[in-house]
Measured scan of single mutants.
Amino acid sequence: MATGGRRGAAAAPLLVAVAALLLGAAGHLYPGEVCPGMDIRNNLTRLHELENCSVIEGHLQILLMFKTRPEDFRDLSFPKLIMITDYLLLFRVYGLESLKDLFPNLTVIRGSRLFFNYALVIFEMVHLKELGLYNLMNITRGSVRIEKNNELCYLATIDWSRILDSVEDNYIVLNKDDNEECGDICPGTAKGKTNCPATVINGQFVERCWTHSHCQKVCPTICKSHGCTAEGLCCHSECLGNCSQPDDPTKCVACRNFYLDGRCVETCPPPYYHFQDWRCVNFSFCQDLHHKCKNSRRQGCHQYVIHNNKCIPECPSGYTMNSSNLLCTPCLGPCPKVCHLLEGEKTIDSVTSAQELRGCTVINGSLIINIRGGNNLAAELEANLGLIEEISGYLKIRRSYALVSLSFFRKLRLIRGETLEIGNYSFYALDNQNLRQLWDWSKHNLTITQGKLFFHYNPKLCLSEIHKMEEVSGTKGRQERNDIALKTNGDQASCENELLKFSYIRTSFDKI
């Protein structure tokens, strides 16, 4: 039985969820670079991206490699990797027998973001014989899940209580170790020597080791999670996991709180800001991140802002960003909400898709409305799209047979046209069989910064309504002859009103 693990408890099935942008060198404390989270699957090609990484700022997932063999891993080693800020997950990587050479110096898994409450997941690794993470000293947050690894031993010899604050939620089941077939031998045991430290858990006094050649490092209890030197002297209180010299914040392997210019500090002093819960960055760093993602459509890219001495992905609820200094300031009234469309555009074809934009005031991208039916549609669209004030790209209304009016965009005031449909149009209306009105132009103002209007096959939309939009939106004169079809717009509506004058002759039985 794995020490510190839980057996036999019912657990939810383990679901495996399925960018080499360097964020800056980590400095003297770390020998390499800070790398983003990685999802490495199918083959070993991307694994080489770990070569210079000291910190993975995010998670590391290595999974679904069915053609790899043990010899493929023999020359692979990433000794610079010290810390993973989120979680480490391995799933069905064939041929991998140990992690001792792959990650010989991995010391800390912070667990800032977890995989279903777990910071370390080893699942269905069919050839893994031992973990071998002999320098792993601290899992700051989260638990361990090690399950269905039929060859995995050296679990009962690990004292997880020396690595985690609590072992109650560890789930370590259905491994070879369960069948008591392992016969784990710690260093020196074969020669009758006791080389590794022994600890007591559940009444068992057991030597602690990761492999037959690597003991588990056990520091004096007084050192807590700070770690200790090879001689057993406690590291500085700002260290986490390990250090090369005692009581020196510049000799830590990793930091308990924050890293700044080669030393570990309790908090980031001005003019620095907390970033990702582990390091200090200056304003320029946060500003660069903001600008890199301002026009990016890459998933996970955030326009970072500053709030409460932190550089964070977005302002919290009730705050909006001051564009001059990136500071989050309290909103006066309802907060603006910028919604970034991942692929640059979004099609609204149902109430469900409209709900995804609920509360958005600025759309960074283009909207395509293609709704053919739905219950209580006008009210639903207004509830979900009615706060949109600005669209950076274009607005396209296409084959939306259920629409009679666009009044559900009740606050839309600006279409920038930074991206144009077919390279020309910022407003595009095609084949809307029941569209009769755009907006009530006596109450609604709309500016279209650039781009043209396109109207074709809107049989109940009168040309007068379209011409009014040209005047109000500032697009009059931009359109070419064929942009607004004269014969297919309003051709099934009563669009022309003329005053009919009647004269009559009164007659009676005795007068003409």
Rank of each mutant, 00 (worst) to 15 (best):
N179P: 03
L120W: 01
E151M: 03
D248Q: 12
V144S: 06
L102W: 10
L174S: 06
L44F: 12
G192S: 08
D261E: 09
L89K: 03
D247A: 13
N135M: 15
Q287G: 14
G132M: 01
V305N: 12
R145Y: 06
R263G: 08
S244L: 13
P269L: 06
P269M: 07
L89M: 15
S213V: 06
F115M: 05
A230R: 15
Q299P: 12
Y304A: 08
L327D: 06
Q299Y: 04
N242I: 12
L327I: 06
N52T: 04
L120A: 05
P36D: 04
M83F: 12
D277M: 15
G300R: 09
E57K: 04
R46A: 15
C186R: 01
R41H: 03
P271G: 09
D159A: 03
G142W: 00
Y87N: 01
L233S: 12
T199N: 07
C268W: 00
N105G: 06
C252Q: 00
R297T: 12
C53F: 00
N202S: 04
G95N: 08
S143Q: 05
H48T: 06
G203C: 04
N282E: 15
D178Q: 07
I306R: 02
L114W: 02
C235T: 00
M321P: 14
C286R: 00
L120S: 01
C243M: 00
L90G: 00
C228M: 01
L89A: 02
I185G: 09
E97R: 15
L289P: 03
S284N: 07
P313K: 08
S324Q: 13
G232I: 02
T229G: 07
T199V: 11
V121I: 10
C335P: 04
R74G: 15
P313R: 11
C219R: 01
H307W: 06
V206T: 07
F115P: 01
R74Q: 05
G58C: 01
S225M: 08
E49K: 15
N150A: 10
M65Q: 09
N149F: 01
H127R: 06
G183W: 15
I312M: 13
M137N: 06
P246I: 04
V200F: 09
V305D: 02
M321E: 02
D75A: 12
G227Q: 04
T189Y: 05
W210A: 01
